[in-house]
Design a protein around this nucleic acid. Structure first.
Lengths: 116, 116
DNA sequence: CTCATTGCTACGTATAATGTAGCATTTTTT
DNA sequence: AAAAAATGCTACATTATACGTAGCAATGAG
């Protein structure tokens, strides 16, 4: 069995000084990219919404990621729930192409379309 | 002190079925993005090269990430060392804009330029 | 007042990352 | 060719993270 997450499997973080490496460290924590992606796609979410949308995330980790994302100014806690900041959306715009790309990547690795 | 990695601090992963989430799970492991980035920027590297360039990565984790990245067909082990595959470079092209963005993000958060 | 929902916190267990040591193999130096 | 240095890892103990379940205080609905 694969030791990396084929679509339908598990993951893990890092350390440095350069901005890009600091960003990678942040994004390289469990669920970080998933939470940001979800917030940008779905719009404002309550804590419970996020728990539901991210399926198996534990409240402990969700709370930790939200705190980090808030400190990183990528997410904010407004009335109506958590939402991505302008900065967070900027980042999302850069990440968005990964959505399509991941489908072809998935196909290359698994030999089939996701739900195809 | 911040609980997220301001440029010059530490990081962490996740779980799902959709390709984008699987990709996030992979990229969300410690050092994964950093290793891929390094290989694409620096070209083929030996194990030792990567250890040096990624400063504090432990050989145990480096070995694990390389194995996962190989299974994900993003990296390959050729004569001359490890290098990104065509697929890996495709992904890098999508990630590359994060380099510049991270500098402005860093400035926004820390209030100063990186080494400015 | 009661019950359901929300937003977490606590806590014990399991998994992953760190850091140092060291060994087998290949390469370099003399 | 022998000795020394560099390379590519593996082992192992320690520490840090994540998981998963339980549950509590606060808010809102009935």
């Amino acid at each position: 069995m694969a030791t990396f997450p084929t679509p339908g499997t598990p993951v893990r973080g890092s350390r440095s000084g350069k901005p890009i490496m600091a960003l990678f460290d942040l994004l390289g924590r469990s669920w970080c990219l998933g939470v940001l992606w979800t917030l940008c796609k779905a719009g404002p979410c309550t804590f419970r919404d996020l728990q539901t949308r991210c399926e198996s995330i534990s409240p402990t980790v969700l709370n930790a990621r939200l705190k980090e994302l808030r400190e990183a100014v990528l997410v904010e806690h407004a009335e109506g729930g958590y939402q991505a900041t302008a900065t967070g959306h900027q980042l999302f715009v850069l990440l968005e192409p990964l959505g399509k790309w991941s489908n072809s990547w998935s196909k290359q690795i698994t030999g089939r379309d996701w739900r195809g």
